[in-house]
Every structure is written in C-alpha cells, then in structure tokens.
Design a protein around this nucleic acid. Sequence first.
DNA 1: TTGTACGCGTTATCAG
DNA 2: CTGATAACGCGTACAA
Lengths: 342, 342
Amino acid sequence: MVGIRDVARLAGVSTATVTRALRGDPSVTAATKAKVQAAAVQLGYVPSAAARALSRGHSNLLGLFVPDIVNPFYAQVAQGLEDRAAEERYHCVIASSHLNREREQQLLTSFQDGTLAGLAATTVGSDESFAAALTATRGPLVLVDRRPRGFNAPLVRTDNRKVTRHAISRLFAMGHTRIAMISGPREFDTACQRLSGFRMAYQDAGSFLPDSYIRHGHLGEAGGHAAMRELLALPQVPTAVFCFNNLVTVGALTAIRAAGLKIPHDISVLAFDDMSLFPLVDPPITAIAQPAYEMGRAAADMLLRRLAGEQEVTDIVLPATLIERESLGPPPAAERITPPAT
Amino acid sequence: MVGIRDVARLAGVSTATVTRALRGDPSVTAATKAKVQAAAVQLGYVPSAAARALSRGHSNLLGLFVPDIVNPFYAQVAQGLEDRAAEERYHCVIASSHLNREREQQLLTSFQDGTLAGLAATTVGSDESFAAALTATRGPLVLVDRRPRGFNAPLVRTDNRKVTRHAISRLFAMGHTRIAMISGPREFDTACQRLSGFRMAYQDAGSFLPDSYIRHGHLGEAGGHAAMRELLALPQVPTAVFCFNNLVTVGALTAIRAAGLKIPHDISVLAFDDMSLFPLVDPPITAIAQPAYEMGRAAADMLLRRLAGEQEVTDIVLPATLIERESLGPPPAAERITPPAT
DNA sequence: TTGTACGCGTTATCAG
DNA sequence: CTGATAACGCGTACAA
C-alpha cells in the first residue's frame, strides 16, 4: 500500500504539498508540481477513497434508489444520473427496493452511514418513520418521478397531466367515447396527475366517465393483466385503454391477446412510458415517452449543485411526448352505431 | 454528528465495548450489550462508513462494470448481483462503460482507490495496459459473460456453444439449409463460442457454410441492422438468421421489417438473449435465454466468497435455454425446391 | 469481560 | 509557496 507519505518522501516535500500538487492547487510551483506528479506515477500512488471520505466529510458516491433497475425506465434514469455524475468524478450506488418498505428502510440506513454524498430516489414509502429517516439524512436528497406525501425535497418529474390530457383528447377525436384507464395506486401523485389529465380530457369532450372505467391501484405486469381482464369483463367493454406505465401496459397487452382481441381493431391501447421494443410489437404501440435519461441527468445535476453549496434547488418539470404508432385506431364499427348506455 | 464516543459515554462504557456490543461479539455481557444498544438507538447512532472502511481496510461496496446498464441483460445481472450482495449487507456501484476504452480505464482507476471491495466486470478491453490495471487491483475480480485475452480472473458465463449448436440444429431440422449468423467482434470469446456452436450444427447437418453467411464484428442495434441489410442484399438470401445478442436482434428485426419481409414466412429469426417483450413482438421471437439474474448472483457470490477468505474460486458455467415462440418456421417454398448454389 | 491507546491515509488549518 | 500537525471516526491489539 503506497501512501501519500511515500510520495512526499520521494518527491522531497511534505504530504500537504502532495495533496495540493495533485489537486492542481494554483499555489504550487510548476516545478514542485512536476516533481510530485512524477513521484506519484512512479510509485503508482492512488489516494485512498476511504481516507479521503473520512477526511473530507463526504464520499464521491451518489445514490439512486429505484423500485426496479430492470425496468427500462429506471435503467435510463440510472444512465442519465451516472453520466452526469461521471462528469464530476462521482460514481453511483444503485439499489432496487422492489417497492418493499423494509428494503427501503434498510437502504435508507446505509445512506445514513455516509456512504453516499447525495441521494436520488423514487420511493414508495409515505409513512412517517420513512419520511423522517429520509429527511434526517446526511447529504442532499432529490426525488425522482414522484413525491410521496410528507416530503419536501426537490423533485424532477414530467408534466403528467398535460401530456395525458393531450393524448386522451386524440382518442376522443378518433371517435372513442368509452376510454378506460388502468391507474396506479391512489397514493402515487403520478397516478393522480395522469388521472387528472385523463378526466380533463373527458370533460373537454363532454363525455361521461363511469367509475368502472378507472381501475385504481394496479402496478406491474400482473396488475395490468388483472385490470385489463376486469375491463374486458365489463358489460360495456371500453373501446380504448390508457395504461399507467410500461409494465402495466405489457400486462394489459398480454390480457388483450389472451382474449383474442385485435389492436386497434377491437380496442385501442395507449401506453404511458415508451419501451425500445414498442415499435416492433404487434401492433407498434403508441406511447407517451418520458425523458427518463434526462430526468436522471437532472437529478444528478441538482444533487451536484447542492453539493457545491447551492441552496436554491427547486423542482424541475420535463416535457413528455406522445409517440404515435399503430395501437390507436377508431372504435369498432358496432360501437359507433350503438352509443354507450348512460 | 453523533459518534461512537457519544454512545460509549451515554452507555457508561468504552468505545471498544460499543463496537463489540454492536457487532454482536459473544464476549460481551447481555446486560452491557442491552445498555449499549439502548444508547445507540436513543442517540440514533450510525457508524461512519468511511471510518469503518478506513479502519477495516475495505468497504462494503461491490462494483459492477458493464457495457450498458440500459441493456436488459446487464440490468438483470445487476439485479442478481445486488440481491446477493444485499444478503451480505453489501451495496453495489454500477458503472456503464459504453464499450469505451477510456471510460473503462477511468472506471478502473476509481476502483484502485479502494472504493470497491470487489469487482464484477464485463469488459471489452483486452490490451496490455488494461489487463495490468485490472490485475493490479485492490480487491477480488470476477469476470461476467466473457473473458478478454490476457485475463485470468474467474468467470461466470453460459454454455454458449452447446445451446447454439442445439438451437441451430432445430433450424436444419425444419428444412433450412441457408442459415446466416450476425456475429459479434472476433475478439469476444462469446462470439467465438456461439460461432463455434453454429459451425458445429452446420457440420452435424452436413451442410456447406459460405463465408458470406457470417457477418463478423457487429454490435448494437445499428450493427444488427447493417448486417441484416448486407445479408438481404446477397445473391442467395439466407432463409434464417441467428443473431449474436439482443440488441443485434432488434436491429435485424428492424431491417427485415423495412425490407417488407415477413417472419417466419420469408425468413426465420433466432435470437441470442431473451427480452421481456419478445413474446409480444410480431411475430413472437424465439430466443436463447441466458440466466442473467443468476449470473449476477453467481458473480456476487464468488466475490463474497473471496472476500470471506476463500481462495479457490473457479469458473462457473450456467445453462442457457431455448425458448420457442414463432419466429422460426420452414424455409420459403421456393427455396425448398431450388437448393442453394454452393 | 472491559478499557486504553494507537493506527488507518487524507485533508485542512495555521504558521513560517 | 510550503511544512508540521491536528483532526476525521472506528477497529483492535494489548493490557488490566
């Protein structure tokens, strides 16, 4: 283990000078700097991260807590975060909570030990103890995608309501009157916002929205699948579905296929969150794409700024865009003739 | 910042006892242990990760270097690694190299500073300096998926040759005689192994394999796309294609679609690496699925074992499985009548 | 069983 | 511009 003292000795200077020289401190003669650097490379000296962290008071690690790194949306957020962090010589600790409270708590604890200089998180926990743990943290905190109740950390998100309203209006424009939504848990502000946009589109169209067309609390492929089955079992089957997120969409798609229905001929499908394979799906899926990568970058940026001393870090809202493919079409002919009861 | 001394004071013991009590050392009275724990929770004491790492000589962080965390294959590896690591209270630092040598070197340096206790990596670098850097590392190293030349670290991989040979034989059994392969870089041992299995299947079938049916050095969606276009421009268009990996498959699929060809009617497609959306693609893609999650777990396990003092850690080969869907079919009728010109 | 005291490798303060 | 030295917070021989 070659340490800073070895370098200092070889270069004929003090350890303090070594630090300064290596950090490029302007108050060091070019000559000394050269000597030190030469000694450092000759010895293959690399400063100890642990010692540095202990001395400086914080590490060069940014944390990212997400529900599931396998979900491409979060993987992209991670990529954005990492790329931005790398620019500042930071690295990323990525952890998946699987939407599990215990795991989240456990992760939080490991953050309290100062392993991380800052944390970007998409959490599910909204209970008191959780919020307390998250707030009583060592470094800056940034929320990604959604903000659970009781948190006041800055958030980076997309304009859920606006895009949703816009996208759903397209469906109405195509002649649909019976559009359903498979929504997420009521506690998710994202679910609320998307639902809000959905409702606004209904109002804009002057249509009536039966409660049964909104399936709350569905998450993941299984949730999407179950919700879609419920929807298909309704007396008045909807002619279009709006899915809360990518996984829910996949589940819904599977259910529709299992039921032997054709998209968009029998039913139209609109997804929130795009996926790289959506263009190749049968049929290509029309989706609302969130700028996941940019969200990750923005989160890292906010963290970095706070780490650099900046106090005023506020929410940032990024635009999502509707990517039109082929899963949206006019409602089935029969439906156009027989308007829905009620 | 509440430190160990505060806890010691409140509990009326020494710092040494605090450490021992908290670590569950058997040489501590149940009574003292209780006192200490009470004091610790009362004060909300959390040991500093940096101080601990400095003192113990290594952190509780495992590193994972992959080409691209957005690639679902690596995301699954990451998930497996993290899950296994979490069992041992380790966390994961994940970094994407984007197959970029410079970035890999940079990442390597940050590993040399002791940030990581161990490293699992899927690297591209095979040059001398890179190997040297990777070997002159602080903690144990495990290779995932492939081993570049010059490395002697243990590897966790799948039996590429065997599955490939098996899968390709299915194609021959269906009547194909003109099967092409879009392969990866020649330096990748994975490419060599899959190519080897491919060739063996050709031998088993007693068929002749023209050089033009093997496209070397293709990677990513762009690579797959380009290679597929070349294949489609051949005088004797192949009746089936085997794609090196998931991204290459996507690119090939896009090219086939752009050419207006139907799968499997006009051409059959076999993918290496499964993807969650393959069942929904038009048509559902038949793929060779690698146990990515298990590979990640295995890698973490090997690292953990070495960290626990075990010396004998050897390669581990996991089985891959062929998942049959609908992208494989008999060759076009015309082809069955007119055998390929040598 | 428990306490004392030192080491881990840097950084940063404060003289010079 | 450079050097000596005190933290940083924990783990652990060694002693009691």
